[in-house]
């Protein structure tokens, strides 16, 4: 049969694979078990990150609401005292 060399090769490969699998060492990494509470440094870092969250969006809504409202700004604007231009000549 023409396929004989191929079948032979397949069987050989399987045998080699089985041998290789048998040689594999046991997994080196033990599953992590949390034993201790976070250190103060770690807690501070998390707190800092949480504190930064509001900065993701502009939260100073009062500032923005007023400063984007042209009508309100006109009402609140205080005209500065007109200061006479005293200087003479191009400065």
């Amino acid at each position: 049969m023409k396929l004989t060399p191929l079948v032979f090769a397949a069987v050989l490969l399987l045998a080699v694979a089985a041998w290789a699998a048998a040689q594999e060492p046991a997994p080196a990494v033990e599953p992590v078990v949390v034993t201790a509470a976070a250190t103060p440094e770690e807690e501070a870092a998390v707190a800092q990150l949480v504190a930064m969250l509001p900065t993701i969006q502009p939260l100073d809504t009062s500032c923005i609401n007023c400063h984007q409202d042209a009508e309100l700004l006109q009402q609140l604007a205080e005209e500065p005292e007109v200061v006479e231009k005293l200087s003479e000549g191009s400065g």
Binding site: T55, L59, D60, C66, L76
Partner: peptide, 16 residues
């Protein structure tokens, strides 16, 4: 993304 008050001080309230 930086709050106005972080740069300018002042307070985020409605009264001017």
């Amino acid at each position: 993304y930086i709050p106005c008050t972080q740069c300018h001080g002042g307070q985020n309230v409605d009264d001017k």
